[in-house]
Design a protein around this nucleic acid. Structure first.
Length: 255
DNA sequence: ATGGTGGGGGACCCA
């Protein structure tokens, strides 16, 4: 089964791209971020017509997450239990024998800002929750827009994107490592060692054409799922379309 | 590293 993560940067604008990509790529499960839609505006009928059930947690203007699957989505959890947060950034569900947690991690703006503090607190809360989830659901995928580039291979210019920069700062990378320390693995790195494979490119400065990007969209798999991973990658095709999202889908294939 | 772009919503906020 193919499981993917895509930050669509407004599902209202990107629904045609999503429909096209579902038809062409054929994922079994998709975690969507930045839907920017209130729940009553979610296009569940259009997605059902495309063959996907959906569960979602959205709000006006910002954030918003959803899970799509060809099969039933059970035991749906919205938000981090016990962590008060008005921002819709988390949705989890079980599809078959796999638990999928979809995260839209806080961006954090700049190191040292209030938003950066919120990002680190949020990451701590999500780690505590995922630790508990792993105990219940050993076959776990944690995917999403992590807003953290794991290491120097995942940024176009490591001198700019260094230990003091947002998305690559020491504390952010430590938080990601702490998450991986629970028994999760960056699926992309199970099968790809190369540098310069990115999932996000700034809209400005013709960044996509010049491949000035970051790999911040990740699919993490648990110890129990790791031996079932047959491939992982990033599908750049939707980023080439007219009026694209600034992110491309990251995917993992599980046998 | 910015802000040259983009989304939302209707002036700025967020990324």
């Amino acid at each position: 089964m193919k499981i993917a993560s895509w930050n669509v940067n407004s599902l209202n604008v990107r629904l045609p791209h999503l429909e096209q990509w579902l038809a062409e790529f054929g994922p079994d499960v998709v975690g969507i971020q930045e839907t920017k839609l209130e729940d009553h505006k979610f296009p569940d009928a259009a997605l059902a017509a495309a063959g996907y059930r959906s569960v979602f947690a959205g709000q006006k203007t910002y954030n918003g997450v959803a899970l799509l699957a060809r099969g039933a989505i059970e035991d749906v959890q919205i938000g981090i239990p016990g962590f008060e947060d008005e921002q819709k950034r988390v949705i989890a569900g079980t599809i078959g024998d796999v638990r999928v947690i979809n995260l839209y991690v806080v961006n954090g703006q700049d190191v040292g800002t209030d938003k950066y503090g919120y990002k680190l607190r949020w990451l701590e809360a999500v780690r505590e929750w995922i630790k508990a989830e792993l105990a219940v659901y050993p076959q776990l995928v944690v995917l999403g827009d992590f807003n953290i580039a794991p290491d120097a291979r995942d940024v176009h210019d490591p001198e700019v994107w260094n230990e003091t920069h947002i998305l690559t700062s020491a504390a952010e990378r430590e938080a990601l490592q702490a998450l991986l320390g629970l028994g999760l693995h960056d699926a992309f790195r199970l099968h790809n060692e190369e540098a310069g494979v990115f999932s996000w490119w700034d809209y400005r400065m013709a960044a996509f054409r010049r491949n000035l990007g970051l790999r911040i969209d990740l699919t993490l798999v648990s110890d129990a799922l790791k031996p079932r991973v047959t491939a992982a990658g990033i599908d750049r095709a939707p980023r080439k379309l007219e009026r694209p999202s600034d992110h491309a889908p990251a995917w993992v294939e599980i046998a």
